[in-house]
Amino acid sequence: MDALMELLKVFVTGGLICVIGQILLDTTNLTAPRILVIYVVAGGLLTALGWYQPIVDFGGSGATVPLTGFGYTLVKGALEGLKKEGILGVITGGLKSSAAGISVALVFGYIIALIFNPKAKD
């Protein structure tokens, strides 16, 4: 029962975060890339205020998989860096904590882009 409850929490948290994005898409002139940026920045700021950690504790992957989670990782990294190495940690911490995601997205993405061709839509 607990496991099922956990899945439900992940589903609902992730779903709700996406619904906010959908409402932004449908009611404003914002395009998807702008919404991604808004999400990362919002995730970062919420983390700084200490409001995102409870969402992560509740929703698990439901809160870390959406891009707000990317902002969360970046800011968390910078804050941890600050604790360990002071101001240098702020400079390196963000990229350090998100290094895997960014590296893979760019390098694997590069490989994919070199292999595949875009298809015309019909």
Binding site: L25, T31, A32, P118, A120
Partner: peptide
């Protein structure tokens, strides 16, 4: 041409987005 105009004026073809 759909594909040339789309890439110049709007979004990449393979980008997952919704058109209004």
């Amino acid at each position: 041409h759909f594909a040339t105009a789309e890439r110049q004026f709007r979004m990449p073809l393979e980008h997952g987005n919704q058109r209004p």
